[in-house]
Simulated assay, not measured.
Amino acid sequence: MKDNQSTTSPGRGRGRRRGYRGLSAEELRKQRHERLIAAGTELFGERGYAATPIEAVCTHAKVSTRHFYEQFEGRESILHAVHAALVDNMEQIVRTSLTESRTPLTQRVADTIESAVFYLLEDPRRGRILCIEAVGVSEIMEKKRRQTTHNLADIIERYASLMADNGVLPERDYHLPAIALVGMFNELIAEWLTEETGLSAMEMAREAKILFRAMIFGAQHYQPTDGSADPLDGEMPSE
């Protein structure tokens, strides 16, 4: 009597071999990667980067250290990946909010700043990783942080130029004001995370929007960055 062996010929279905729970090796690898990123976000954001060894990340993600090293070179490598994922999410929020065409441009920019700050504080782990834990880790990480600052400043600068085209702002180079604006928000987030401000995350986001509005109103007195006389050398403009 013949046993119940499959009659599938050798080679048929080759390349479609399924692994654990019917998932392919690539699907399993992707799942492990997602769990590691989630674990890194949670632990770096709660315990801190320096206090979180690789073994803790692996245990939390239910991933072996062997599988960890298949995807990351080490602890800083996964910090880079966690940082990049958070930045990508925030930049997507920024772009979506800025392209909401039903809202006037100035209000759109203000609302975008509020949304970005709220994203970082609604789940404080996000803000802690981007504005505290990633600071001073290494020269490579600092370059990534500077690049993030410039990427966000570039977005602000482009929309400041649009506001200038619409007569809301004077014509000038807005690169340095945009850099300063990103830096100001980083410090606001760090202050909220490390000190008792008495404000909720949403109130802090609104505070950031108020500061942006103050910059816009102040910018109406900006001078072109062409070496002309500094208005602060004379009397302050009257209200």
Rank of each mutant, 00 (worst) to 15 (best):
I93T: 04
G127Y: 07
E133P: 02
L105A: 05
M204Q: 06
H150M: 13
S64T: 13
T148I: 00
L23R: 10
E70Y: 09
E100H: 10
Y119S: 07
A116M: 13
F68H: 01
A180L: 05
Q107N: 12
R102L: 06
Q31M: 12
T59K: 10
S77W: 02
K144D: 07
H60I: 08
S161L: 15
V57H: 06
L86W: 06
L86F: 09
Y119I: 12
R206D: 07
L188S: 04
L86T: 03
S115M: 01
I156A: 12
E171D: 14
L121D: 06
S101L: 14
S6R: 04
A219V: 06
Q223R: 08
R75M: 00
R95Y: 12
T52W: 02
E191N: 13
L232Q: 11
R12Y: 11
E196D: 10
H221Y: 14
N89V: 00
Y174W: 08
H83T: 01
H33P: 14
K2G: 10
Q92D: 04
F217E: 15
D88P: 02
A201W: 09
I54Q: 11
L232A: 13
F72H: 05
Y49A: 01
L193P: 03
W192I: 01
H60T: 14
G45H: 05
L232K: 11
S161T: 15
L121S: 05
H80G: 00
N151P: 08
N4P: 14
Y69S: 02
P224C: 02
A39C: 08
R108D: 09
I156E: 08
P237F: 07
Q71I: 07
G13S: 08
K2C: 06
G22W: 09
G136V: 15
A153P: 11
P104R: 10
Y69C: 01
T65F: 00
L121W: 06
G74V: 05
S138P: 10
R29I: 09
E133Y: 02
E26I: 08
T149C: 05
E34A: 15
E114R: 15
V109K: 12
T8E: 14
M163C: 03
P231T: 04
P224W: 00
E139V: 10
G48M: 07
E235V: 12
L181I: 01
N151I: 01
L188W: 05
P231N: 02
S238P: 13
R35F: 12
T194N: 04
A84H: 13
H80A: 03
D88A: 15
S9E: 15
R17D: 05
G19R: 00
R29G: 07
L36K: 12
C58N: 08
A50W: 05
M236Y: 04
A164G: 13
V137H: 01
G22R: 15
F185E: 03
L121N: 04
I113D: 09
L43I: 10
Q71E: 14
E196V: 03
P124H: 07
N186K: 14
E191V: 15
A164E: 14
H221G: 06
T8P: 10
Q71L: 14
V109Y: 04
D154V: 10
E26P: 11
L181M: 14
H175P: 04
L152A: 09
K209W: 01
R145S: 01
R108S: 09
E187V: 04
I132T: 11
E171P: 04
Y49K: 07
E34L: 15
L121P: 03
G218L: 09
A201V: 02
